[in-house]
Amino acid sequence: MTILVRRSNLVIPATQSRMVRWAWNLGADAIILDLQDGMPPSELETARDSLKPAVSMVAKGGAEVFVRVNAHSVYADAAAAMCADLTGIVVPGPESAADIAEADSILNELERHAGVARGSAEIFPSIETAAGVWRIREIITASPRIRQVIIDEAELAASLGIVQGSDPDPFVYARGRLCIEATAAGVQPIAVADPTGLGIANLGHDDLVQTATDARNLGFKGMVCSHPAWVNPVNEAHTPAESLVDYYTQVREVFAQALAAGTAAAPFAGRMIDVPVDEWAKDVLAMSAACAARDAEKQAASEMARVWQDTFGLA
């Protein structure tokens, strides 16, 4: 099974052309171009007009690219985004399988018109309401296009009438449900970096890495980052650290020796190593290799982009 490495999902407002030009260089595994809610119609039109070039622009560094469409204009927004460089669309606020089925049929149609392989565009549901949390199973299993899912905690807080703060945490249940249901369905649960919108002013690199690591240890496979400063810490937290790789390499050796000696349970550093620990060790080492491959892919794309930029002055 191939591992989907999509650690950092950086959000860039589609209308901010300076950020759109720079985003490819920030190291994100995925970039979400946001057609924000509440944009004046004329601005939305302008954003749609320049959306396909924007998708290609932010993809230059090897990032996968999503466009966050508006719930009330999925067709028009997705049509403006559809191109070979598009990985998928973020669908905000789905509350039922029918909401996903509609997006799915829109993408079928747009892919046909654009000559893009059918079924290639992903749907990335962004759950925003209690009904969405409750019906998460039907939502994420409604289309094979869904490979990752998120709960937009700021939107959920607003819809529940919660004044958001981190203490006490109002979303223990919702987050747990997301991780369990998504993992059971073979869909990657994605967390929100800085869900309370506190910013990063008081947080150092280690704090950001720790926050992202905690999310990983709840079962999340990546984070949506509303600020570029989150990208490197999130990538770091979701990449097995060297110490972890060393530890699990030893675990595999200890377990192999135990098997050779006729037992599948071996003590190691005060712990018991048996089949599930060895299996997890394999997973960690495979994840480490997959992250390295993804990083190499992005680096190669970025180097190519810089060559083009330097040689032909293409920005």
């Binding site: 223990v172 249940y173 987050r175 747990g176 449900r177 991780c179 369990i180 993992t183 905690d214 990983r216 240890n217 709840l218 079962g219 496979k221 048996d274 599930p276 620990v277 299996e279 997890w280 997973d283």
Partner: peptide, 26 residues
């Protein structure tokens, strides 16, 4: 909870918070 669950969920087994709270509750 436990090793198999942590592996399936893709989380480290020994951390400072309850990564299994929802599943255990269910």
């Amino acid at each position: 909870s436990g090793y198999d669950m942590s592996r399936d969920l893709g989380v480290e087994m020994f951390v400072q918070f309850d990564q299994f709270v929802y599943g255990k509750g269910e």
